[in-house]
């Protein structure tokens, strides 16, 4: 077996940890923003929506490059000391995943009948209870947003390679390991890692599908 064999579990664990935390942060920020934007009737909402959807097309290498400049020794965020650490990779993946969470949540919430919050309100719901009711009705779309964010994060390679550096035992994740093995000409092992990546994505999406079908408290 290739030399990566001993590190496989740590690579797998780091991939899950980095992408999991990135999805968690982007969901904590993105879902409330998406709900607020989806319910908002303000002018400029459509322009903001277009900007957010453009964010879905952010090139990962550009995000990686900008973060590299910010975190490098001469950059304004150098004092954090995050360059070539999993923290920088989490930031990169969060930036890439966030537009997906906001955009898809916003569309899902906007698709809920606009009368619903008023009808909920007249049953005695507080403002927060109204928002929760709308989120509950839009839950399929919201969880789809989380799934899309996870897909974007776990499969990302350009940004994490630049800000993480693909350091063995420290910042090497599945995608960067695939790049390394492909460069070394070990296509079989690279393909095997690709299969592991897909299985991981499948497992997470099965969990999300389960949540979509499950009962959400009213």
């Amino acid at each position: 077996m290739p030399p990566l064999d001993g590190d496989l579990w740590s690579i797998l664990w780091l991939s899950l940890r980095v992408s999991g935390v990135a999805v968690l942060i982007s969901s904590l920020i993105g879902i409330p923003c998406g709900v607020w934007l989806g319910l908002s009737q303000r002018r400029g909402r459509h322009l903001l929506s277009a900007v957010i959807q453009t964010g879905m097309a952010l090139p990962p290498v550009v995000v990686g490059l900008v973060l590299y400049i910010l975190l490098s020794r001469s950059g304004p965020l150098a004092f954090l000391g995050w360059l070539f650490t999993p923290k920088a990779m989490i930031v990169a993946q969060t930036v890439l995943a966030l537009p997906f969470v906001i955009g898809i949540t916003m569309s899902s919430v906007a698709a809920v009948p606009s009368e619903l919050p008023l009808q909920i309100r007249t049953l005695g719901a507080s403002a927060w209870q109204c928002r929760w009711a709308v989120l509950r009705e839009a839950r399929h779309g919201v969880l789809l947003a989380v799934a899309a964010a996870f897909g974007r994060s776990i499969s990302e390679v350009g940004a994490v390679l630049i800000v993480g550096g693909n350091i063995q035992g420290h910042t090497r994740v599945l995608t960067t390991a695939i790049v390394l093995e492909t460069g070394k000409g070990d296509f079989a092992f690279a393909l095997a890692l690709g299969a592991v990546l897909l299985l991981l994505a499948l497992a997470v999406n099965l969990l999300i599908a389960r949540l979509q079908r499950g009962r959400w408290p009213a």
């Binding site: 009368e115 009808q119 005695g124």
Partner: peptide, 17 residues
């Protein structure tokens, strides 16, 4: 005050469930 009154609308929307 809100909870003292309720409106049954012409076209009610029910929650999923």
């Amino acid at each position: 005050t809100l909870r003292r009154m309720t409106l049954v609308p012409q076209r009610p929307i029910l929650l999923a469930g």
